[in-house]
């Protein structure tokens, strides 16, 4: 083909457009279903709606002011922080321990790694239902354990503090596998020479863990932290079937409050505002972790 001809030029133009064509479908999905709702939700949080006339009015940051002075939202923010804090602490400890174990054992490695991943395959609802049964007064394992050890059985899901504890345990069980896998992958990349060097310098046991292992897998710990806090701050699947936000509002975390406010009370403006708060908290926390751990 003649390089100067129009047809050649058109073909060349078309070739240069290929990557854009290839990206277009994926981009269209992401923009329409993921980006558009965030933008429209944020804009929606700046307006107030009249339920009867369906008119909206620009309200600036008034919705947020109302939100932060609303005791129900303050309560849900506090519950979210407790749930996330408990999950992050317990989850980090358990997943680091499990990852260290997986890295140390020499036989049945694949089996135990498989076991550590099982909760990842289970839906949040199934996890919540199983834990609810585990802690239920009608044949739950914990109840049976209490009875067989001679203790007075207590109600777990009917007590506000213990219901939160059950949620933290469920959530940790549900979210740990990913953190374990990430930290395990990090542990496997550590050069064993570091441990030899540490042993020569007289460093053993927990001190090796603290001074050698942890600094070396710092980025993986950061990723696990991001994952744990992200998932716990927006947790929804686990809470609804386990406690349904109860007893009272003792476990009504932000996502549940948002769902109820929007779909039960039909107060979309407040729902949008809570949605924005959840997003901002998530993004801010990941920035903090990225800075701290230099992921």
């Amino acid at each position: 083909m003649n390089p100067a001809s129009k047809a050649y030029k058109r073909q060349k133009m078309l070739k240069a457009m290929y990557p854009y064509f290839l990206i277009a479908p994926a981009l269209a999905f992401v923009m329409l279903i993921l980006a558009y709702p965030v933008v429209s939700g944020f804009i929606g949080s700046l307006y107030t709606y009249d339920m009867f006339t369906l008119e909206s009015e620009f309200a600036g940051l008034n919705n947020y002011l109302r939100l932060f002075t609303n005791p129900r939202f303050q309560n849900s923010l506090l519950r979210s922080v407790i749930l996330a804090g408990g999950t992050i602490g317990l989850g980090l400890f358990l997943s680091l321990s499990f990852a260290l174990c997986l890295n140390s054992i020499r036989i049945f490695k694949a089996f135990f790694r498989g076991v550590s991943l099982v909760p990842w395959l289970v839906s949040g609802i199934a996890a919540a239902v199983m834990f609810r049964f585990l802690f239920s007064g009608n044949g739950g394992l914990i109840y049976v354990l209490y009875e067989s050890l001679g203790f007075q059985a207590v109600s777990w899901l009917g007590h506000s503090g213990r219901a939160m504890l059950v949620l933290i345990l469920t959530n940790t069980w549900f979210l740990c596998p990913f953190a374990i896998l990430v930290m395990f992958a990090g542990l496997q990349t550590i050069d064993p020479n570091y441990y030899d060097a540490a042993a020569i310098d007289g460093c053993y046991g927990l001190r090796t863990l603290w001074h050698v292992t942890v600094p070396l897998i710092k980025p993986m710990i950061g990723i696990s932290l991001i994952w744990l806090s992200f998932a716990s701050f927006s947790i929804f699947d686990i809470v609804l079937p386990t406690t349904g936000g109860g007893p009272g509002r003792a476990t009504e975390v932000m996502a549940v409050a948002m769902y109820r406010v929007a779909f039960h009370a039909l107060d979309y403006a407040t729902g949008y505002a809570i949605m924005t708060v959840i997003l901002v908290i998530n993004i801010a926390m990941s920035f903090v972790y990225l800075k701290l751990f230099r992921v």
Binding site: A16, P19, Y20, I23, A26, L27, V30, M31, I33, L34, A35, Y36, P37, V38, S40, G41, G44, F230, A231, F233, S234, F236, A255, M258, Y259, A262, F263, Y268, G271, Y272, M275, I278, L279, N282, I283, S286
Partner: peptide, 28 residues
């Protein structure tokens, strides 16, 4: 290609959105 990085981020960043936060706008 031009805008490669911007487009890559545009596709990757939405991954951090918790899905529960999208339900109200998506419902509308």
């Amino acid at each position: 290609f031009r805008w490669r990085h911007v487009l890559l981020l545009a596709i990757l960043i939405p991954r951090i959105l918790p899905r529960v936060s999208l339900i109200i706008p998506l419902y509308e």
